[in-house]
C-alpha cells in the first residue's frame, strides 16, 4: 500500500540533506519526494511517498521526527487524505492522441510537438500512461505526490 508522509522542516541549508540522507542511511525505500518553501518562508514542506508496511512507516516518521531540523511530521495515510500529482507529457504532433485529452490539458504546441499537463492521483496517472502508450509519448515528467488531509487537520505550527 502506498503511504504518504508530510513534514515541515526549517528552511535552512543542510536540512534537506539530513532528511534525504536518513533514507539511504536507514535503508528506507522512497518513491517520490517533493519539497518547497511554505507561505512561512522559514519553513519548507516536504511530502514523500513510500510502499513500506505500517511498521516501516512508523519507524520512518519517528526517525524523521528525531531530526533536529524537522518541526512536524505526519503520516497522511493514517486517515483520509487527498493525494495529487502533476504530470507533463510531450508527444510528436503527428501521433498526439487527441481523444485522450481536452484542449485545457495542452500547455504548449508548435509544428513538431505538443506538451500536455495532467493532474490526478498517482494511480490515475499510472493508468493514463498505460492508455497513451500506443501514441509513443517522447517524454513523461512526474512531480511526485503532494498530500493534504481531508478533514480540518492541518500540518502547521500555529495549532
Amino acid at each position: 500500500m502506498k503511504r504518504v508522509i508530510a513534514l515541515l522542516m526549517e528552511n535552512q541549508p543542510g536540512a534537506l540533506s539530513r532528511v534525504v540522507g536518513l533514507f539511504s542511511q536507514r535503508g528506507y525505500n522512497i518513491e517520490t519526494l517533493v519539497v518547497a518553501p511554505t507561505t512561512d518562508p522559514t519553513l519548507s514542506r516536504l511530502t514523500m511517498s513510500t510502499e513500506g508496511d505500517e511498521k516501516v512507516v512508523e519507524q520512518i516518521t519517528k526517525q524523521l521526527d528525531k531530526l533536529i531540523d524537522v518541526v512536524l511530521v505526519t503520516n497522511l495515510s493514517e486517515s483520509e487524505f487527498v493525494e495529487r500529482e502533476l504530470m507533463l507529457i510531450k508527444f510528436r504532433k503527428d501521433s498526439f492522441p487527441e481523444n485522450a485529452f481536452q484542449d485545457s490539458n495542452v500547455v504548449s504546441k508548435n509544428d513538431e510537438v505538443i506538451n500536455v499537463q495532467v493532474v490526478g492521483t498517482s494511480s490515475e496517472l499510472d493508468a493514463l500512461i498505460t492508455e497513451i502508450k500506443g501514441s509513443n509519448p517522447i517524454e513523461v515528467v512526474r512531480s511526485g505526490s503532494l498530500g493534504i488531509s481531508s478533514d480540518k487537520n492541518t500540518l502547521s505550527i500555529e495549532n
Binding site: G14, S17, G21, I68
Partner: peptide, 14 residues
C-alpha cells in the same frame, strides 16, 4: 565536515 559527519552526529552546525 557537515556532509561526512551527517549520519553519525545528533546534529551539526556550519
Amino acid at each position: 565536515m557537515i556532509g561526512i559527519s551527517r549520519p553519525i552526529v545528533k546534529h551539526s552546525f556550519l
